[in-house]
Every structure is written in C-alpha cells, then in structure tokens.
C-alpha cells in the first residue's frame, strides 16, 4: 500500500511518455509531471520525518531507553563511527533514538541491502534512517561496502555499524568481528570510533518474535578510539572488541 503510493509519480511520468506515441491519449504536461515529482518528494520527506519521530516514540514506550555516556561526550558534534553489538533488528533504531537531534540527523546506520531493500522496509531504511545499504551477499564483484561507508563519512555523516556483520543469535555475548571495521578505520583514520553496547534489546525482541515485550534497555557509549598506524588488523579488532565487551553491565550482580 505504502510502496504503491510512493510509485505514483513514476506512473504519472510514464503516462506522459506514452502520450508521445499515442496522439489521442490524455496529455500530461511536463510541468505537472515535475510538480508531482517534487510534491511527492516533499510528502515523502515529511512522511519520513514523521515516521522517524513515531518510531522513536514507540521505541521509548517499549524500552524506556536510556543513554549512558561512559567516556564519550554526548554533545560533541564531531563525526563518529558508532560500532555496536547486534542481536536484534531494532538495534540501530535504539542507538538512533537516544542520540540528540542534531547528531541524529547526520548519523546513518549501515544495514544489509537484502533485509532493508524492498517495500515498507525500504522506505524505513532509505527514507527514514537514510541507511547506507550494503550488499552483504557480495554476489556482485563490483560491490565495495567499505568504499560505500568511507564515501558516506567523506560526505560528513556519522555511521552506526555492527562489526559482527550479522545478528548474533547465539548465547555468546559477541560474535567475532569481521574485518570491515579495520578497513574502514584505515580508510578514514581521523574519525573517532565509539563502542556502543546495547543492553537487553535481545530480550525485548528475541529471535523469531514479532511482538516486542516492554523491558527497560540501555545504550552504553564508551570512550572514543582510533586505529594506531602501527597496529595490525587482528590487534586492532581485538582491541575494539574488548572495548565493546568492557561496556557490558555486570551480570553477576544483576542475574
């Protein structure tokens, strides 16, 4: 329904193109076509902003999410790469929700094109969150996820990314990191890397569940780090992983 609505301008423009070949068909003036196109872009943008607000309100209602800044400054407007643990489809929504508005607007999540590629998800992924959609399957030899992310950084955006590469559905706290974080850090060595531990969201929406259960969540932001020029890939990824694990709440006391 939503995607059909969003197709409307294309349909109108197609009608106009057809009019060239069929003299008796209704003519659609070029200006109308452009106007509807512009109109739809505006509607789409506003719809995206509204949807973003609604999603943030809903996320707060379910999780009462609280940001805990442990070493990073919440008001710092510098460009950042937030790297977080990934256990639920709602992960970047939660991080995005707790960021202050000016930060939020220039922060783009990195997400799999296979999941966020079509229909309503496409609208949420592209328009609402302005996600950098990457091809995780790598069937296309020309696809270059690190290049895509680096380009987004060069355009001034911050990124939210999940270095595990996929949702962690195991009992382990973290899966091994893929190398993407390292390559990105090497491509953009001046950007701060901020570890982000998302706590409890995997209980709100566990694997296979589609109704979220209201439980309190926290998003813990750690101290920014950077790639040391002399540091190797494995050493860097281990250091990043440890920095993320250090943000876990003390389960001994809580369980």
């Amino acid at each position: 329904m939503v995607s059909a609505l969003l197709q409307m301008p294309h349909v109108l423009c197609q009608l106009r193109r057809q009019a060239r070949f069929f003299p008796f068909s209704p003519s659609v003036p070029a200006i109308a076509c452009v106007q509807t196109e512009v109109g739809y872009v505006v509607i789409r943008q506003n719809l995206a902003i509204l949807s973003g607000r609604a999603i943030a309100v809903f996320a707060r209602l379910v999780t009462a999410v609280q940001a805990v800044w442990r070493g990073a400054d919440p008001g710092d407007m510098r460009q950042r790469i937030y790297f977080a643990n990934h256990a639920s489809h709602g992960d970047f929504i939660l991080v995005w929700t707790v960021l202050a508005d000016p930060l939020r607007r220039r922060t783009r999540p990195v997400a799999g094109a296979d999941y966020w590629g079509s229909g309503l998800r496409r609208f949420i992924g592209r328009d609402v969150f302005n996600a950098v959609l990457i091809d995780r399957t790598r069937t296309d030899a020309a696809s270059d996820p690190v290049g895509q992310m680096a380009q987004a950084l060069r355009q001034g955006s911050s990124l939210i990314l999940f270095p595990e590469g996929t949702r962690n559905l195991t009992d382990a706290d973290l899966l091994p990191f893929r190398s993407g974080l390292y390559h990105l850090a090497r491509a953009c060595p001046k950007v701060d890397l901020v570890p982000v531990w998302i706590d409890n969201l995997n209980r709100v929406l566990p694997k296979g569940a589609f109704i979220p259960v209201p439980l309190m969540c926290k998003v813990n932001f750690g101290a920014p780090m950077r790639l040391d020029p002399a540091e190797g890939k494995d050493a860097f990824l281990t250091r990043a992983r440890d920095a993320l694990l250090a943000l876990r709440p003390n389960r001994e006391a809580a369980a």
Binding site: A64, N200, N202, R203, P206, K207, A209, V213, P214, L215, M216, A254, A255
Partner: peptide, 17 residues
C-alpha cells in the same frame, strides 16, 4: 511502567516471550 521495570530484573528468558 512498573511491570516493565520489574520484568527487566527477572530471569525471564526468550522461552518466556
């Protein structure tokens, strides 16, 4: 709101979803 706080501190697992 109270139930949301209380359930957060329980041992409820994904089997209790």
């Amino acid at each position: 709101a109270a139930l949301r706080e209380f359930m957060t501190l329980t041992n409820a697992t994904r089997a209790d979803h």
